[in-house]
């Protein structure tokens, strides 16, 4: 927790992907902090507690100086006398916290997140890994089923119109890439990643209508959702040549 907001970081058990989630202080009804605070929490326990709250409930998260637990108070909005309190004890993660250095990416595309989710799902049916290539003209996601020889490919061409936003939920321009593509393209880049982790990242589509894919040769793939209250980033380690 810092004066800007709350930053969460987590890693999967196989250490293939790292998730970073930033929630700005503006997404909270009130946000008070005396000093920066770093907590290691079991995400399952935190999720279990937060799921006890209904959509309209008020959740208050509290941790004191040298605290060993995060206290979550859940209050019913129209019945403020009705409060339940839950403690989530801290755990020791040791050195599992990582510093993510900001690197200049070679290419960035932004596509509709629902389309991205469909792409990840479809290619995962074919193969455990896929190749992502971004060239000047667009981007290509390819998966090959080595058993049957079937190959699946999704191509995104650079949008001709700068703001090819959809007018309604149903009016989705096929394969359109939003204009940020121009600004972030420096050189043709390709990466191979596990489809399983791409599917995982793509499931966060409800957060934002758009998702960005950023790449740099031999660096983790970055799948990023920007939204008003913050940003969600998935870093996925590539499969590299032996």
């Amino acid at each position: 927790c810092s004066k800007e907001g709350i930053m969460l970081q987590g890693m999967d058990e196989f250490h293939i992907s790292l998730v970073e989630f930033f929630l700005s202080k503006r997404s909270f009804e009130s946000y008070a902090l005396c000093h920066d605070l770093c907590m290691s929490l079991p995400i399952d326990s935190l999720a279990t507690v937060l799921k006890k709250a209904n959509d309209d409930d008020v959740c208050t998260l509290k941790a004191g100086h040298k605290a060993k637990v995060l206290t979550v108070a859940i209050e019913t909005r129209d019945q403020p006398w009705l409060v339940s309190k839950h403690d989530v004890p801290f755990i020791d993660l040791g050195s599992e916290y990582l510093v993510i250095s900001r690197i200049p990416y070679d290419a960035k595309i932004t596509v509709w997140s629902t389309r991205f989710a469909r792409l990840a799902h479809e290619l995962h049916q074919l193969s455990g890994s896929l190749d992502i290539q971004i060239i000047h003209e667009g981007a290509r996601f390819t998966a090959l089923d080595e058993g049957s020889g079937k190959k699946g490919c999704f191509i995104f061409r650079r949008a001709k119109v700068v703001d090819e936003y959809r007018d309604s939920e149903d009016d989705e321009p096929a394969g359109a890439i939003i204009h940020e593509f121009h600004r972030y393209f420096h050189k043709a880049t390709s990466l191979r990643v596990s489809t399983k982790y791409l599917v995982h990242a793509s499931k966060r589509a409800p957060l934002s209508s758009k998702v960005s894919v950023l790449m740099k040769e031999d660096q983790p793939l970055l799948v990023q959702y920007d939204f008003y209250e913050g940003v969600l980033k998935f870093y996925i380690a590539p499969r590299i040549a032996d």
């Binding site: 890693m11 050195s95 510093v99 250095s101 660096q219 380690a237 590539p238 499969r239 032996d242």
Partner: peptide, 14 residues
């Protein structure tokens, strides 16, 4: 052939 790299190898521990 390709092998899966570990995400920890790209980022540093503080």
């Amino acid at each position: 052939t390709r092998s899966q790299s570990s995400i920890s190898s790209y980022f540093q521990a503080p």
